Amino acid sequence: MKKRDRERKKARRAPYRQTKPVILVVSEGKVTEPGYIRTFAQYYKNSRVKIELCGGMGVPKTIVEYAKNRKAEAEKRAKREQDENLKFDEVWCVFDIDEHPNIPDAIQMASSNGLCLAISNPCFELWLWLHFAPQPGMRERHALQSMLQKHIPGYDKQIDFANIADGYQDAVLRAEQLENAALEDNEDRRNPTTGVWRLTKSILR
């Protein structure tokens, strides 16, 4: 085989596919959620986690729509440039139940488009609370935020995972227990439950 032919064949070789999944996280919150996820990924040395904030009012259906479009854009670019590394292996939407409308529609849209969900009811602070203590019972958002002051003095939505890392495994166990109990009662995603633990497990893969 001539040298030129060998070089041409080498040039057509597909890009090397990274083994660690590329994860896109689309967040409703602008401070707490991205802060936790970013520092969690840094703590466990995973540089293949990308976090984007969804503009607008943070309505779950809007977040899912944004994530769906970003996934499609990445897939088109990967196909155009013949580089699978440009695709996202997983796309996660992180939002709260709170008092948002159209939650079932958002969940259905995510399912139809292969998106993953990390939903907290009532809010993301429940996931933080589980790093310190068992489930607090049914609470509303502001009550949970106030309760966190007991464990994170001066809590103002800023969070660095390194400061609460010791409670992570307990948080996962407690979140799983809450989820299983809700499913047994046929009350999926009831207050209190959080699916953030699933996202963290993906980041750790």
Rank of each mutant, 00 (worst) to 15 (best):
R13S: 13
R17Y: 10
K9H: 09
E140D: 12
V172R: 09
K30G: 11
K20L: 15
G55M: 03
F88Y: 15
I103W: 02
E99A: 13
E73H: 10
Q18M: 12
E28A: 11
E140Q: 13
R190M: 08
A162D: 11
G195I: 02
Q18S: 14
I152S: 01
K71D: 07
S111V: 01
N85A: 08
G137V: 08
R189Q: 10
Q149A: 08
I152E: 03
R205N: 15
H142Y: 09
A182F: 02
V25F: 03
L144E: 03
R17E: 15
L128K: 02
D156K: 14
I119Q: 08
A181L: 08
I107Y: 02
S111R: 15
Y16M: 12
F161V: 05
Y168C: 00
I97L: 13
N46M: 12
R77V: 13
F88R: 02
V59S: 06
R13T: 14
A171V: 11
A162R: 14
A72R: 13
V94C: 10
N163P: 01
I159E: 10
E28G: 07
P60C: 05
E99Y: 09
V91Q: 08
I152C: 04
S111I: 01
H142V: 06
E125M: 05
N102T: 10
A67L: 06
D156Q: 14
I51M: 05
K79H: 10
A14M: 10
N113V: 05
K201G: 01
Y168N: 04
H142W: 08
N113S: 14
R80V: 11
V22P: 00
E84G: 01
S112W: 03
F132K: 04
Y43N: 04
A118E: 07
I164N: 08
D5Q: 13
P192M: 05
I97K: 14
E81V: 01
Q169P: 00
Q18G: 13
K76D: 09
K71N: 14
K2T: 11
S27P: 09
E52G: 03
R205P: 01
A14K: 15
V31G: 05
S111L: 11
L126E: 04
D5F: 02
Q177D: 13
K68H: 12
A74Y: 06
E99T: 14
Y36I: 03
P136K: 04
E65R: 06
I23A: 08
K3M: 07
G58F: 06
I203C: 07
D188E: 13
K79C: 01
I203E: 04
K76V: 02
I103Q: 06
A143C: 09
A133Q: 13
N191V: 07
E7T: 00
D170I: 00
K10L: 15
A106C: 07
M138E: 15
M147V: 00
F132R: 01
V59C: 04
D98C: 06
G58I: 08
Q82V: 09
K76N: 05
L128R: 02
T62K: 12
G167W: 05
S120E: 05
W129N: 03
L148F: 12
P153C: 07
C93F: 11
D5I: 07
V22D: 09
M1F: 11
P104E: 06
W92E: 07
H100D: 01
